[in-house]
Nucleic acid binder design. Structure first.
Lengths: 201, 201
DNA sequence: AAAGTGAGTAAGTGATTACTTACTTATTCA
DNA sequence: TGAATAAGTAAGTAATCACTTACTCACTTT
């Protein structure tokens, strides 16, 4: 007997959110179509009413995660100039959002990479480049505001920022989320902040 | 008909090297016992003469990778004091070794994490902490030599270094190794170096 | 020379995978 | 009202997974 119908859009969201939760809980190797179906209380076949393949599910999930990451950064940044203080605030908000999501974004990226699917890999590569690009743009506004050094390679600084964040989140999640991410992040951020800030001498 | 016999030690090394290669080529999801056997031209059952389980294979592989990473750092560091110049040289050697290994170390770590095996996860966590600890020790010698700031959180700096390296390697491998890692690393390193160096003002 | 052993093989095991098929039900709308 | 359709189900499919079994061979030891 068929249950009450659910709209396609809602279902698609439920499905990728289930995939997201499963990746966090068990790692990508354990994300199966059957488990996704169980997670939202439906059958395997029903999943295929909403997605053509498992790859399509992960592909949409990646898009949502990119929106999350970039959304964090855009939210904090006032469209005007970026002083070091607004940069501080943006990054704090970003890390806090990552902590609330339990590092989901970076984990999912790592997990999806491990599937070895070429199309998904280039999709991640592009998304990562856009993310780094946004950070670079943020720093660039800081340069215009005169609060960030203009003799620094902004792309390198943005990649450094990305790596710093991803690295700490990795250690944090590997260790079972046992320390407070924001607190653990503070000393890293202060080193980074000092290295790009203009008024150092 | 049984082939000519191979010694256990040699076989174990062949097996983990095959696993390493397969992870690089296809991602961890595609590392199967059958594929490992094919890779070294033997049968699936033969693998189980040398390892009790697939997990044991990956576990030994992780040990070798930790040796690689820490070996890089120990090699460069003269047992005496560490000036910024010796630090430069050590890091350059480290990155060059990573490049020659095609980023294998960081990739394998990410892939094995994605398996979601708890025992392997804590093993990686411990190995990563030891690696970061070695970097911290290296920086600490720089402080003693008076070339690195003594008002800096060395653990944070070490984690920052790890994240920076891992992040760039990830982007590098996701993009299909299309740029020169050492060259891409230089501007990141110069930002990091400046931020921990003493003579900044 | 006989017995033992370590490394190998081929052919399984049941479990699980992504995905399909044939069919049913609930809702919408002409 | 009744046909069309979107969303669901149960039960399949062939392929693949880690791992096992029964057996063979080459070599060493006694």
């Amino acid at each position: 007997m068929a249950r009450k119908r659910e709209s396609t859009l809602v279902r698609r969201r439920q499905i990728i959110n289930a995939a997201r939760r499963l990746i966090i809980r068990h790692g990508s190797e354990h994300v199966t179509v059957r488990r996704i179906a169980r997670e939202i209380g439906t059958s395997e076949g029903a999943i295929y009413r909403h997605f053509r393949s498992k790859r399509d599910i992960l592909s949409l999930l990646l898009e949502h995660i990119e929106e999350d990451l970039i959304g964090d950064i855009e939210r904090g940044g006032t469209n005007g100039g970026a002083t070091l203080e607004t940069l501080d605030r943006t990054v704090r908000g970003h890390v806090s959002a990552i902590e609330q999501r339990k590092g989901i974004s970076f984990q999912v990226i790592a997990e999806v990479v491990s599937l070895g699917d070429k199309k998904l890999n280039t999709k991640i590569h592009d998304a990562l480049n856009r993310y780094v690009g946004r950070i670079e743009a943020l720093l660039s506004r800081g340069v215009e505001a005169g609060e960030i050094r203009d003799d620094i390679d902004l792309n390198a600084a943005a990649i450094l920022f990305f790596g710093m964040t991803q690295g700490l989140v990795n250690i944090w999640s590997l260790g079972g989320y046992r320390f407070n991410l924001e607190q653990g992040y503070a000393p890293l951020w202060s080193i980074f902040r000092d290295s790009v800030a203009r008024n150092r001498c």
